[in-house]
Design a protein around this nucleic acid. Sequence first.
DNA 1: TTAATTTAAATGTCGTTACATTAAATGTAG
DNA 2: CTACATTTAATGTAACGACATTTAAATTAA
Lengths: 149, 149
Amino acid sequence: MGIGEDIKQSKFKSELSKAIINILYTNSWLSQKQVLLFKPYGLTTPQFNVLRILRGQHPKPATINLLIERMLDKSSNASRIVDKLESKGLVARRQCPNDRRAVDVIITSQGLDLLARTDLDMDRWEDGLVSLSEEEARQLNVLLDKLRA
Amino acid sequence: MGIGEDIKQSKFKSELSKAIINILYTNSWLSQKQVLLFKPYGLTTPQFNVLRILRGQHPKPATINLLIERMLDKSSNASRIVDKLESKGLVARRQCPNDRRAVDVIITSQGLDLLARTDLDMDRWEDGLVSLSEEEARQLNVLLDKLRA
DNA sequence: TTAATTTAAATGTCGTTACATTAAATGTAG
DNA sequence: CTACATTTAATGTAACGACATTTAAATTAA
């Protein structure tokens, strides 16, 4: 179903303005699916994303600033997301030895375990999105990158 | 700049998983720009979207349910968005004559005026996104629609 | 070295979102 | 008709986000 039927809007000013709405709508569509995916693990999407960044760094720590820099949604509050993850024992905070202002955040083995379990679901979910070929996905990436240029 | 550099992630599991992240990231990029666009008019993005739906219906009214159905982000609370718009005099509520449970929401002339002024800014902003040709935007729409299929 | 500036993270706040519940009107089955 | 279920919108709430402020440490300049 095209974006037109999805939001019941029959005409658009241009393909570009349609594409902008299409991206916002597709984002909402994807996000909704992700929320459902993470919910059984007691994770919100931002929490999941932070955990993934920390796993990418592992065994090196990440500072809060590094988390902010890499988060998809820059506006969310990294400090409080780390609070939540820490209270669940999924990450640990330590004072950064080089710079006492900074905080080293590392993913715990519990955090790694949890992510490992979500991996299976994530893979299954992405495999379910068979509607795009690898080449089409590549093309989509090119166009999105170009849009932001 | 490609998504890889933007979020400092060098490798992705597949082009598809990269595309998913790319959509989420591009959404965040677009949303941020929209927030700045609407701010001078004292509108949030959901408020703006509801106003646009109401203008699309004008002079017919829309029920709350119709707004929910057409909103890009289904999870936001249409009733309270209408509260905000009503308190600013941009929309008006009337009881629906056919069904007394339902509420007819219409955009006021003030609301139409405000939207007319934002139109200029919206056009200018979209015209600023010259990075994609009409054909490329069309292709982007095809790929996004296909992804959601 | 001291004072001023910048940087990192945490916190306070206010509005919004997400989700469940409520209230009222309508629809439906017995 | 009556009772029960469904639908429509509004509301209560707890958590989250956006954004300014604060606190502490590091950097820079005088």
